[in-house]
Computed example of a mutant assay.
Amino acid sequence: MPQHVRGVVARAKGEPVRVETVVVPDPGPGEAVVRVQACGVCHTDLHYREGGINDDFPFILGHEAAGVVEQVGPDVTDVAPGDFVILNWRAVCGRCRACRRGRPQYCFDTHNARQRMTLIDGPELSPALGIGAFAEKTLVAAGQCTKVDPAASPAVAGLLGCGVMAGIGAAINTGGVGRGDTVAVIGCGGVGDAAVVGARLAGAVKVIAVDIDDRKLTTARSLGATHTVNSRTTDPVEAVRDLTGGFGADVVIEAVGRPETYRQAFYARDLAGTVVLVGVPTPEMRLELPLLDVFGRGGALKSSWYGDCLPSRDFPMLIDLHLQGRLDLDAFVSDTIALDEVEEAFARMHKGDVLRSVVIL
């Protein structure tokens, strides 16, 4: 029987979000209903509200979530009611050419629930990243549910669902950071800070954090950066070279998504080094580089989508590291808020006052 729950809805571009009554249908084949326990407030949710993703309003926002499976539909075998799960937006198909070649993290046909949640007055809702977890309960594809150790706090576990996973994965999965490497991270928001953490986890000997905000640089240092560079006052390319014996970093992670910062990353790497783009650009942005420099410097230019993660592989591993005291996920939680405080959290995030606000349900 369909359930009525409270959820945060963006009805039109730029309008403040509000808590409304959402109708959650019974799960169909391959679907699950999850009782949400916590959900992080991510920049992507703000982009949805501002029409920066698409104009498929109204949206039900929220996607960095953890909770407990309440119901499953027919043919669901991987999760069951009572399982503590992190939600992800990459339910792999198992059939496409990437999956058949043993590379499901690059699945070309990821999917979400087939049914839509609706507002009580009728309109269908578009769930942010196929999740829509600023709600007491949400409907997802069962493959979007990854079981993890229930000893973890939902407030920190859910952060692996997007930004923290993207940053850690950019360092470990995409960048291949190894023991003794030097790493530079350009842009120290949530994703960049997670890349700092990932680089240290992988054994990097030197991690250089680059940003234009001293507050963010202080946070990056607290999370493991060995050096910081304020690129508002210092040339970041020269600074990274100076800190790496004149050579440049082995891996440079660009977590901003702008042409000018990508060029900085390109020239701040060592010969045969690696550049990883994990910052998300906008459609109109264009990049111009001398092709001879691309050829002559060698190495690799990579893009990292969701940290090249495979949730079934990466989420349980990272939760285990957290529970062992080797990955401080609590450091990413700036404050906890109620469901009706999301709009205020957007304002604080826009000002750069928080790393992550987390909605507790």
Rank of each mutant, 00 (worst) to 15 (best):
V8P: 02
A32M: 04
G40A: 11
G40E: 04
D45H: 07
H47M: 11
E50P: 00
G52C: 01
I53N: 04
D55Q: 13
P58C: 11
I60W: 02
V68K: 09
Q71H: 15
D75G: 10
T77H: 15
D83Q: 11
L87R: 09
W89Q: 02
G94W: 00
C99T: 06
C107E: 02
N112C: 11
N112L: 05
M117D: 02
E124A: 15
I131D: 06
E136F: 03
A142V: 00
P150L: 14
A157R: 12
G161P: 14
A170H: 01
V177R: 03
D181C: 07
G192W: 08
A194I: 05
V207A: 11
K216L: 06
K216I: 01
T218G: 15
T219S: 05
T226Q: 05
V240P: 03
R241P: 02
G257K: 09
E260M: 05
Y262R: 09
Q264V: 01
D270K: 14
L271N: 14
T274S: 09
D293A: 15
S304C: 08
S312P: 11
L321A: 08
D328F: 09
S334F: 00
T336S: 01
I337W: 04
E344C: 10
E344A: 15
F346Y: 14
V354T: 04
V358I: 04
L361C: 01
